[in-house]
């Protein structure tokens, strides 16, 4: 249909459409490419007083290092400032959050999708309200009890908290994916001789993978992108990448090593790029079909 219509479209309208899209793509993508490119320069180029062309050609970088590109920012961040440790923590946190979220979420989402009772409805509504809670308000409720229980600052605490914060969203999304699987399937399995749990494990889960992958992506993003929880609940040596970058800013700007932060920012962005590259379809389907956003 769109082809037939496209032919009849007046030239001016076409020009507007293409112009608008080009403008949007520039707005959406250029900041990233600019920062990636600039991360291989020295600070005098990335923040150039003279002309921003310096950031493209690396005038000062050539003057200071003899080459138009330098990995000094990366060396500083990863080696001198222990960014590798933060990256390691991020891997631990995101993997654990994703796996635990999905385990709890599939069980709960399945129960919600298959129970027609009133309390299932109310649990979903409560989850909706919980999902709307700003994370930082919850964090302010955690700190004091966590200090008292002496579990503040360590990774497991943050992981469990992120899993819990993520549950409302995970439940909603998986619940709607489970609803799309016909009930006949679990019922035949149960008549064929399965318990409820066997039906869930042997029959439903094997056809649920697309939904699990999509939900998993969003759980991953939540753990990866979180700042409020990890910044407040992790001690300095256990920090993940995002709070680490934020704590970089305070200390680095004084010593003039902003480029460490730029390099760290780029390092933390690359995995997201790869994620979108490989899972674009799932992300789009999750945003639309899941009817909830992470």
């Amino acid at each position: 249909m769109s082809d037939a219509v496209a032919q009849k479209r007046p030239l001016a309208l076409n020009a507007i459409i293409y112009g608008f899209i080009v403008l949007w793509v520039i707005l959406a993508a250029v900041p990233f490419f600019w920062t990636v490119w600039g991360s291989f320069k020295v600070e005098a180029d990335f923040f150039s007083r003279e002309s921003w062309w310096n950031a493209i050609f690396g005038t000062s970088t050539t003057r200071q290092t003899g080459n138009a590109f330098t990995g000094a920012g990366y060396y500083g961040a990863w080696v001198l400032r222990d960014f590798w440790r933060a990256a390691g923590n991020t891997i631990i946190v995101t993997v654990c959050v994703t796996v635990i979220s999905l385990t709890l979420g599939t069980l709960g989402g399945y129960a919600l999708a298959r129970s027609g009772r009133n309390y299932a409805f109310w649990i979903l509504i409560a989850a909706l309200v919980f999902r709307a809670m700003p994370h930082i308000t919850l964090v302010s409720g955690y700190l004091l009890p966590f200090f008292q229980l002496n579990i503040w600052g360590v990774l497991p605490t943050s992981i469990i908290v992120l899993v819990a914060i993520n549950q409302p969203f995970t439940l909603w999304m998986l619940h709607s994916f489970f609803l799309s699987i016909p009930k006949d399937l679990d019922e035949s399995a149960m008549v064929d001789g399965c318990t409820r749990f066997q039906a869930f494990r042997l029959v439903i889960m094997p056809v649920m993978w697309p939904g699990v992958v999509t939900t998993g992506l969003f759980s991953f993003l939540l753990g990866y992108n979180d700042f409020a929880v990890t910044a407040m609940l992790l001690s300095a040596e256990n920090q993940t990448m995002v709070p680490k970058i934020s704590s970089f800013l305070g200390s680095i700007q004084e010593t003039g090593n902003v480029m460490y932060a730029v390099a760290a920012v780029v390092s933390a962005t690359v995995p997201l790029f790869i994620l979108v590259l490989f899972f674009q379809r799932q992300i789009v389907s999750g945003l639309t079909a899941g009817a909830v956003k992470g």
Binding site: D184, L185, S188, D192
Partner: peptide, 14 residues
């Protein structure tokens, strides 16, 4: 100890 045939068959697609 019964078996059942469903309206939409309930076959396991995998």
């Amino acid at each position: 100890d019964i078996s059942m045939v469903f309206q939409s068959y309930g076959l396991y697609p995998n």
